[in-house]
Amino acid sequence: MMPFDLNTERPLLRVDGLARHYGDRIGCTDVSFDLWPGEVLGIVGESGSGKTTLLNTLSARLEPTAGRIEYRTRDGEVVDVYGLSEPRRRLLMRTEWGIVHQNPRDGLRMAVSAGANIGERLMAVGARHYGGIRAQAIDWMGRVEIKEERVDDLPRTFSGGMQQRLQIARNLVTGPRLVFMDEPTGGLDVSVQARLLDLLRTLVGQMGLSVVLVTHDLAVARLLAHRLMVMKDGRVVEQGLTDQVLDDPHHPYTQLLVSSVLQV
């Protein structure tokens, strides 16, 4: 696993006392952590434990009820994500962040070609040279192992694994620094999953990406994440280095979770 840069003094993302309530019910509450450049943070837990609520709140798509998220931009400026004006927040999401959805249909434009899907972010930040946009799209298709000849095909003609890879390419084309992933391997069969994980690991290493990864699959977490947060009923019950948490779980719930994994 790629070691992340320990020499950088300040974290990329600093989350403090974050909570999101749905009326009286708790989506997630009292979440605090720092994410460092190049680090992959896994959030695990059973369904309904508040993982996705937390991810949406972190990725500026769901206003928190309480708490604060600070992000350090490329220029070194520390910004309060929900304190930013909407244009700045959108620009941030387009240029510095990426969001990979569990269902590729939520993250792709199904009615436009693969090339345009990858090119959209480039055009959104001002690229106006068709040949250049297309060349970059083709380059990225290669990097996520989709054949170049499919560049003009609609994503709906792609298999599930290809759609997921296309979604990843679409997010990474503008060179983001922080990517949020919600169950990126959900719904894929194991061999496709393995290749996708391989690819993700390579890209994360090459680009020095920071990733917040939500998954219920402990094997995925073990492969990708440097650090783990275990959630239950909207609260973080345990966090630590991935190997530590998985090999020596302390909280009873984590112990249950780890022991529930099917052994082949």
Partner: peptide, 14 residues
């Protein structure tokens, strides 16, 4: 936020 307008034109050319 007008990136999508060029997506349409991109599709035409492609």
């Amino acid at each position: 936020d007008y990136g999508v307008m060029h997506v349409k034109l991109y599709e035409d050319i492609a």
